[in-house]
C-alpha cells in the first residue's frame, strides 16, 4: 500500500471534569487512513470517536488535554506543530462537518454569506465572486433555488438543508481529509440516505479522503472501505469492511453486529 495520509499513533487524551478529577478518555488510539479511501470509525456514544476527530482537528475542548501520542499528516506531526501552523491546516487540509447541522451554522448570518466567507478564505476571491461561487457550491450540494435559499437564516432551513449548506462549505475548503461526525444524526431516514449519497459523490469527485464517524454499522457497510471499531477509548479492531462483516474478530465487534441484526429494533437504533 501507499503512504498513509494520516496516521495516529498511541494517542492518549485526558479529560478534567468540573471537580478537577481527570479521566483518560482516549487510551492509546492508533490507526491509519490512506489517500482517497473512505474510512469508518464506529463505536457507541462515549467511546471516544468524536474526541479522536476533535484531536485531529486540534479542536479539543479546554478541559481535554493530549497526554501523549502523535498524529502524522502530510509528513509532519500535527501535535508538535506551532498553534498557528496547525490553525492554517484547518479548513484547507483537514475539515470537518458535525452532527446537528442546524446548530453548526451561525444563527445570525445568512447561509449564503457563510459559504461565501469560506470561499474567500480558501480560494482568495473577491466578495462578489465568492458569493457567486458559493451559490454554485450550494447547487452542487443539491440545493435548488440557491439565490433564494442563500438569503435564508439557518433557523429557516430544515436539518437536511442545513447539512447541505455545510457540505457546500466543505466543497469550498477542498480539504485533503474530510471528517464527517455523525452527519445525519437527527435527520429523517430518507434524508439520511440522500446526504450519504451526496457525501459519497463528493468524495469521489474531489478525490478527498473521508473519515466517517458513526454508530451505524449499516451505513459503514454501504459507504466505507475500511473501518475501525472503537470502544472505551481504544481501537479494538481495524479491518476492510468486507472482512469485518464476514469475520468479526473482536468480541465487541461481534456484539455490535448482533445488535445491528436484531429484528426487534430498527436498524439505526441508538440508545
Amino acid at each position: 500500500m501507499t503512504e498513509p495520509l494520516l496516521a495516529i499513533e498511541n494517542l492518549y487524551v485526558t479529560l478534567i471534569d468540573d471537580r478537577g478529577k481527570s479521566k483518560t478518555i482516549l487510551q492509546g488510539v492508533s490507526f491509519e487512513i490512506y489517500p482517497n479511501e473512505v474510512m469508518g470509525l464506529v463505536g457507541e456514544s462515549g467511546s471516544g470517536k468524536s474526541m479522536t476527530a476533535l484531536a485531529l482537528m486540534g479542536l479539543l475542548p479546554h478541559r481535554a488535554q493530549i497526554h501523549s501520542g502523535r498524529i502524522w499528516f502530510g509528513g509532519q506531526n500535527l501535535l508538535a506543530l506551532p498553534k498557528r501552523e496547525f490553525s492554517a491546516l484547518r479548513g484547507s487540509q483537514i475539515a470537518m462537518i458535525f452532527q446537528n447541522p442546524r446548530a453548526a451554522l451561525n444563527p445570525l448570518m445568512r447561509v449564503g454569506n457563510q459559504v461565501a466567507r469560506v470561499v474567500r478564505l480558501h480560494q482568495g476571491l473577491g466578495k462578489r465572486a465568492a458569493y457567486g461561487k458559493g451559490l454554485d457550491l450550494l447547487q452542487q450540494a443539491g440545493i435548488t433555488d440557491t439565490s433564494i435559499r442563500a438569503r435564508a437564516y439557518p433557523h429557516q432551513l430544515s436539518g437536511g438543508m442545513a447539512q447541505r449548506v455545510l457540505i457546500a462549505m466543505m466543497l469550498a475548503c477542498q480539504p485533503r481529509l474530510l471528517i464527517a461526525d455523525e452527519p445525519t444524526t437527527g435527520l429523517d431516514v430518507t434524508i439520511q440516505a440522500q446526504i450519504f449519497e451526496l457525501i459519497k459523490a463528493i468524495q469521489v469527485e474531489l478525490g478527498t479522503t473521508l473519515l466517517l464517524i458513526t454508530h451505524d454499522l449499516g451505513v459503514v457497510s454501504e459507504v466505507c472501505q475500511r473501518v475501525a471499531v472503537m470502544q472505551a477509548g481504544k481501537i479494538q479492531e481495524v479491518a476492510a469492511v468486507a472482512d469485518l462483516f464476514a469475520h468479526p474478530q473482536h468480541p465487541y465487534t461481534q456484539h455490535l453486529m448482533s445488535t445491528l441484526l436484531r429484528v426487534d429494533r430498527p436498524a439505526n437504533y441508538r440508545e
Binding site: M57, A95, A104, V118, L166
Partner: peptide, 15 residues
C-alpha cells in the same frame, strides 16, 4: 461553546 463556533474553526476561519 456553541457548535457553530466549532464549525467556523473547522473550516479555518481566523480566530
Amino acid at each position: 461553546d456553541k457548535d457553530f463556533i466549532r464549525t467556523a474553526r473547522a473550516v479555518g476561519v481566523p480566530f
